[in-house]
Nucleic acid binder design. Structure first.
Length: 479
RNA sequence: GGCGCCGUGGCCAAGUGGUAAGGCAGAGGACUGCAAAUCCUCCAUCGUCGGUUCGAUUCCGACCGGCGCCUCCA
C-alpha cells in the first residue's frame, strides 16, 4: 500500500508517485512577513511539517522549500508606516515565525527563500512570458499576464472563464488591463515603493514583482520546472495558485505541479478568525500564557487537513491531557525494569498498532485515525508493561518513537516537562521525605507533603517500585 | 448570482451499504493506607423529510442550518 493524497486539481485521491523518489520536490506557500503569524498560519505550517515528516518517514528523499514573501502591498505599506526599508522591517517577523515554528516542533525545511533575493529570476520569467506572447506591457511600465492566451486558466479552482468575465477590452484606457482577470507580473514603481527600497530596474521599467510571480520564480529556481507537491492554504487556490500555474506553465511549457494539497482554514471558538472580530490568536500569546506547545500542536493536528478545525481553549485542555497520557506511557515503558513472560502480547499489540498507524497515514494523512491507533495501543499495552520483558518494551518504545517521527508530539511533550534543576531537586527531596513518612506509616505527614507538592503542580504515583512523580497534566500549562 | 464544503454523543473528531474509532469530560467498579496513574463497565442511531435497497448514518433528491472561494487572507 502506498501513499494516497487528495489532489486539488483532480478533486480526488490519487496514488502519490514522485518523479524521483530520492528527491521529492515540494514547494509550500509560506507567510507574508509583515506581522506576527497567527494560529491559522500555524495550522498550515504544522500541516506542511506533517507532509515533510511523513514523506521522510516513508523513506523518500525530500527537497522541501517554503518561501517567505517579503515584498508585496502589505509589507510595503507596513514598512512605509514604520519608516523602515523592507529588509529592516520584515526581518524580525521572519525570525519570530521561525522561533515559533521551532517551538511547535516544526522541523526545518531545506530552504526558506525570500522574494527579494530572486528579483533577477522574476525579471527573466517576465521576459520569457513577454517573448512568448503571454504577457503585455502597459504604458506605465507594468506587465500583465494575458489570461486569454492560456486556455487552461481556471482548471485548479474550477472557475468558468466566461462566467467571471467582467469586462471587454477598454481600448481608450491604456493604463488598464485588457481583461479584468489579467493579473500583474510586474507593477510599475510608485513613490512609496522607492522609499522602502521596493523598486528594481527591469527592461520595461522600474517597479516590483507581482505577488504570484514570486512563487513561480522561486519554485522554478529551487525545486524545478515540475513540482511533485505544492502546498498552501485553501484561500490560495484562487487566484494565487491559478496564476502560478499560468505563469509557470506559460514560461516552461511543462506541467507545473503534479499534486496540489490545500489546507482548510481554522476557526477560533467556533468563529472565523478575523481582525474585525478581534479574535486573532497568535502562538506567541498562547505561549506567553504558559500553554504547552505540545498541546497547541496536538490541537492543530486534531482535525483532518481538509476539514475545518475549531481551535478552542477547551480543546487545548483536552489536548494537554492527551499529551500527558502519551508521555506518561512512554515514561512508564522506559522506566520499567520488569522481566515478565507477557512480552508476546505486547509485541502483538505493537504490531497491530504499527499496521493501523501506517495505513492511516497512507490514507491521505489521516492523523486522527493514526492517533486512535496509538491510543488504542496504549490502552492495550498499559496493563502489559509490568508483565513484559525488556526486548518487548524496546519494541514498543521503537514504535512510539516511530510515531513521533510523524506526529512530533512525544518529543514536544517531553520538552514541556523540562524544568529548572533546582526546582527538580526540591521536589526530589520532598518526595524522599514523603517516602520516609510512608515507610513509617505516618499518613498525615505523607498526605501533607503530597498536598504541598500538588499545589506546586507535582503529581505523585505510588507504585510497587517506588514513587514516580511528574508535572501535573491537569492544567494546560507547560509546568 | 457562480463554484464548492460541512452538519456524527456534553466538547473535539474519524469512519462504514449491514445497527458508529479515538481524545477530553461524566457515572459505576477494581487497584491504593488514602490518592494519583492504570485497567474494566456504562454513556450517540449519525440535521429534517422523502427515495433507491433485503438493509443507509454511509447512495440519490428536497429542505433546514453552518461555512468557504469568486483578484492579492494560511
Amino acid at each position: 500500500m502506498s501513499l494516497r493524497l487528495h489532489n486539488t486539481l483532480s478533486r480526488r485521491l490519487e496514488p502519490f508517485e514522485p518523479l524521483d523518489p530520492d528527491r521529492v520536490g515540494v514547494y509550500a506557500c509560506g507567510p507574508t512577513i509583515y506581522g506576527h503569524a497567527h494560529i491559522g498560519n500555524f495550522r498550515t505550517f504544522v500541516f506542511y511539517d506533517l507532509v515533510h515528516r511523513t514523506l521522510e518517514w516513508l523513506g523518500y528523499g525530500v527537497h522541501f522549500v517554503m518561501n517567505l514573501t517579503d515584498v508585496d502591498d502589505k509589507t510595503i505599506a507596513a514598512a512605509a508606516r514604520e519608516g523602515l526599508n523592507l529588509e529592516r522591517y520584515t526581518a524580525p517577523f521572519a525570525e519570530s515565525i521561525m522561533e515559533e515554528a521551532d517551538a511547535l516542533g516544526i522541523r526545518r525545511f531545506d530552504l526558506y527563500p525570500r522574494a527579494t533575493a530572486y528579483i533577477d529570476r522574476m525579471i527573466e520569467l517576465v521576459q520569457t512570458l513577454l517573448d512568448r506572447g503571454l504577457a503585455y506591457r502597459t504604458d506605465d511600465g507594468s506587465v500583465y499576464f494575458d489570461i486569454s492566451a492560456f486556455p487552461d486558466y481556471g482548471a485548479l479552482s474550477g472557475k468558468d472563464l466566461e462566467q467571471g468575465r467582467q469586462g471587454e477590452r477598454v481600448a481608450a484606457d491604456e493604463y488598464e488591463k485588457d481583461d479584468a482577470r489579467d493579473f500583474a507580473l510586474w507593477k510599475a514603481s510608485k513613490a512609496g515603493d522607492e522609499d522602502v527600497g521596493a523598486a528594481w530596474d527591469a527592461p520595461w521599467g522600474r517597479g516590483r514583482p507581482g505577488w504570484h510571480l514570486e512563487c513561480s520564480a522561486m519554485s522554478l529556481a529551487e525545486v524545478g520546472e515540475t513540482l511533485d507537491l505544492h502546498l498552501g492554504g485553501e484561500d490560495l487556490i484562487f487566484p494565487h495558485h491559478e496564476d502560478e500555474i499560468a505563469q509557470s506553465e506559460g514560461a516552461t511549457g511543462r506541467p507545473f505541479v503534479r499534486t496540489w494539497l490545500h489546507v482548510r482554514h481554522l476557526r477560533v471558538e467556533g468563529e472565523k478568525m478575523s481582525k474585525s472580530l478581534g479574535n486573532v490568536v497568535t502562538v506567541r500569546e498562547l505561549m506567553e500564557e504558559g500553554i504547552s506547545p505540545a498541546a497547541i500542536r496536538h490541537q492543530l493536528l486534531s482535525a483532518h487537513y481538509r476539514s475545518e478545525l475549531n481551535f478552542t481553549r477547551e480543546g487545548l485542555e483536552a489536548s494537554a491531557r492527551a499529551i500527558t497520557r502519551l508521555v506518561d506511557f512512554a515514561d512508564r515503558l522506559a522506566s520499567s525494569a520488569a522481566e515478565g513472560p507477557g512480552g508476546d502480547d505486547l509485541r502483538e499489540a505493537v504490531e497491530r498498532a504499527r499496521i493501523r498507524f501506517r495505513e492511516a497515514m497512507l490514507d491521505d494523512l489521516n492523523v486522527q485515525e493514526a492517533m486512535a491507533s496509538l491510543f488504542i495501543f496504549m490502552r492495550e499495552a498499559n496493563p502489559l508493561v509490568q508483565h513484559s520483558g525488556s526486548a518487548a518494551r524496546a519494541d514498543a518504545i521503537a514504535f512510539l518513537e516511530s510515531t513521533n517521527e510523524v506526529l512530533g508530539l512525544l518529543a514536544l511533550g517531553r520538552e514541556s516537562r523540562v524544568v529548572d534543576p533546582e526546582l527538580e531537586a526540591w521536589v526530589e527531596a520532598r518526595v524522599r521525605e514523603r517516602d520516609e513518612a510512608r515507610a513509617a506509616r505516618d499518613w498525615e505527614r505523607a498526605d501533607a507533603l503530597r498536598d504541598e507538592l500538588e499545589a506546586r503542580g507535582v503529581r505523585l504515583e505510588d507504585g510497587p517500585s517506588g514513587t514516580r512523580w511528574t508535572w501535573s497534566g491537569a492544567g494546560i500549562a507547560a509546568g
